[in-house]
């Protein structure tokens, strides 16, 4: 029985090869570095990028189909679609004439910055335009992963249940805008808009709120106005830096 030797076969009193190393490294450091690279490229390309998140079935794709159809004539628009499987969503976007890249995450539950960087390389040039990233339908995991977007938009449907912001607070805390979709269904499902907004502001007092219907087009003018406001905000610091 040897009680002395360490794995290197040495035994020096008070000199164990065992040691503690302080490293203090962010677990998400690698993703965050790639997200920062994406963000720099998007700024260079004068591109406004939104990361759309929601539970499955809230209507992200229907919302995008309408939005890209109505925006594509005024500036370049592209879409990156994330799903575990199928290219159904990218097919729906492409049917509008707008370029789309489908990312299949397989077993993955979220998009990460490297996937988005690679998908962006495969899109045609979108300089001066808008890129929508439709994340995997999941109100948990995508909250943690920065993709390099200007901001996250959480899509919430009137049929989802008013307390979703309390049940999934991280996503609502990480988002700048809550889009309440399927507002045309509100009377049928007894949707309480005030309560939803109250819950959302419990977890994020700064979250902005708009109501839309991807089916009827209600509220989209206000959504576009919000998008142009973001575009102006993104350009301002660059403009201010000019002599």
């Amino acid at each position: 029985m040897d009680c002395g030797a360490d794995p290197a076969g040495l035994k020096i009193a008070g000199m164990s090869s065992e040691r503690t190393i302080r490293i203090e490294r962010d677990i998400l450091g690698k993703n965050n570095r790639i997200a920062a690279d994406n963000r720099a490229r998007f700024l260079t390309d004068d591109l406004l990028v939104f990361n759309l998140v929601s539970s499955p079935g809230a209507g992200k794709t229907s919302l995008l189909v309408r939005a890209v159809s109505e925006l594509k004539d005024s500036r370049p628009v592209g879409v990156i679609e994330g799903d575990q499987q199928t290219s159904n969503d990218a097919d729906r976007i492409r049917a509008t004439g707008v370029p789309a890249i489908q990312i299949n995450t397989g077993k993955g539950c979220h998009l990460d910055a490297a996937m988005v960087g690679e998908a962006y390389r495969r899109l045609p040039p979108l300089k001066g335009g808008i890129l929508f990233i439709e994340n995997v339908g999941n109100l948990v995991c995508p909250a943690a992963f920065d993709l390099g977007e200007a901001c996250k938009i959480v899509v919430f449907s009137t049929a989802d249940g008013e307390d979703k912001p309390l049940k999934y607070p991280y996503m609502f805390a990480a988002s700048s805008l809550m889009l309440i979709n399927k507002i045309d269904l509100a009377p049928v499902v007894d949707f309480d808009s005030a309560k939803t907004i109250e819950y959302a502001r419990c977890v994020n007092p700064n979250i902005e709120v708009l109501t839309v219907s991807a089916r009827t087009g209600e509220g989209f003018a206000a959504l576009y106005a919000w998008i142009w406001k973001q575009a102006a905000n993104q350009r301002r610091p660059v403009g201010d830096a000019l002599p």
Binding site: D6, P7, S17, E18, R19, T20, I21, R22, I23, E24, R25, D26, I27
Partner: peptide
Amino acid sequence: LVKELEVD
């Protein structure tokens, strides 16, 4: 964060 590692 990964704060520290105890290693051999």
